[in-house]
Simulated scan of single mutants.
Amino acid sequence: MGEALVSGPASREALSQRYPRREPDARLVATLADVLADGGKRLHWSSRTPEQLECENGTVRFLIQVRTPPQCEDRSCPAVVYFSGGCPQPGYHWRAEFFLRAGFVFAEPAVRGASCGADWAMADDGPRRFEAATDLEAASRCLRARLSRHGDAPKLGALGWSYGGNQTLLAMTRFAGSYDAGFALAAKPDLLSFFSQAPAELRRRRTAEYGDPVTQPELLRANSPMTYVDRVRSPVALMLGGRDPKVSLSDADAFVRALEARQQDVSLMIVPEHAHLTERPQEVVFEHAHVLAFFADRFGIPLSPAVGY
């Protein structure tokens, strides 16, 4: 399965000790495991027809799929904004169910780069990525306006894995203030550093999408969360797999240290047994238990494993 990249003086073992695996709340783990096993047979709030919210970013328009739990129809509730490279689909999904049952609105923006058609999927490739990323900020404006109730604006959390994790970190750095907290999993904080140390075959496959570290270093810097780390003013959490060859533990360490030096609320966890994207039920539950606990804590809301389920 490979191993996460490491560069510089710190070894993989040293970084794993600095950012150790932590067990989530056992009751929350058990509750999420029950929801996952249910498969939408009894627990299917996510099956309700979602709202398709149309947002504008200059001349560009994109949709955000919004799922709202019943108790949040008439009052402002915190929202988790899930970024991914996929195209949001209606219907039951266990991830949306997790958040709805815990009292969060679950929003999925189809920003430029989402796989809603070939042209849209490539709309953030190469030199277009810098401008396309402004959709992250536009999504925040759109959701705050739509989800406000009686003058009460909602807290917004940014969340994503891999490509979506990169978007999450960019939302929290370059567009600091747009989101009130962010949790990035399997993300690359520094694109230039990562691609400079990545295997040649991986660089070749991703050059058109991200840029070449030799001939286009400024492009990679412009689109790297690390470039804007000094702008961060909201809590950020990262989780990486120790067996993930598509991330750099050293880059994450540098990112976290930069925020710690400014006394920002930041955390990193390295999970030794995890690879790039988790698929086994116990891995899914482990990650989401940490994510839910993070947002509940940072937004100051109760998270009882039994509430809402």
Rank of each mutant, 00 (worst) to 15 (best):
S148L: 03
S148G: 13
R149I: 13
R149A: 14
H150V: 12
G151S: 12
G151A: 13
D152H: 11
D152S: 11
D152P: 07
D152L: 11
A153C: 05
A153Y: 03
A153M: 12
P154N: 07
P154Q: 12
P154M: 11
K155S: 12
K155F: 09
K155H: 08
L156V: 11
L156R: 05
L156W: 01
L156P: 02
G157W: 09
G157E: 09
G157V: 10
A158W: 03
A158E: 13
A158R: 00
A158V: 01
L159K: 03
L159R: 00
L159S: 02
L159I: 01
L159Q: 11
G160R: 09
G160M: 07
G160D: 09
G160V: 03
W161S: 04
W161K: 03
W161P: 00
Y163P: 05
Y163L: 15
G164R: 03
G164T: 05
G164Y: 03
G165W: 12
G165K: 00
N166G: 10
N166A: 06
N166L: 15
Q167R: 05
Q167D: 10
Q167L: 14
T168N: 06
T168F: 06
T168V: 03
T168S: 07
T168L: 07
T168R: 04
L169H: 05
L169P: 00
L169Q: 08
L170I: 08
L170Q: 13
L170Y: 05
L170F: 07
L170D: 07
L170H: 05
A171G: 07
M172N: 06
M172G: 06
T173L: 12
T173G: 04
T173V: 06
T173W: 02
T173S: 15
T173I: 12
T173Y: 10
T173E: 08
T173Q: 13
R174Y: 12
R174N: 08
F175R: 01
A176K: 01
A176H: 09
G177D: 15
S178F: 06
S178E: 06
S178W: 04
Y179C: 07
Y179N: 09
Y179H: 12
Y179D: 11
A181M: 08
A181T: 09
A181G: 04
G182E: 04
G182I: 03
G182N: 06
F183H: 11
F183W: 08
F183Y: 15
A184I: 01
L185G: 06
A186F: 06
A186N: 08
A187Y: 02
A187D: 04
A187N: 04
A187H: 02
A187F: 02
K188V: 15
K188F: 04
K188I: 12
K188H: 00
D190V: 02
D190H: 13
D190Q: 08
D190K: 02
D190S: 11
D190I: 02
D190N: 15
D190R: 03
D190F: 07
L192I: 08
L192D: 13
S193C: 06
S193I: 02
S193A: 14
F194P: 10
F194S: 08
F194R: 00
F194K: 01
F195P: 00
F195H: 08
S196T: 15
S196R: 09
Q197E: 15
Q197R: 13
Q197H: 15
A198C: 10
A198H: 06
A198W: 07
A198D: 10
P199A: 10
A200Y: 00
A200S: 04
E201I: 14
E201A: 14
E201H: 00
E201N: 10
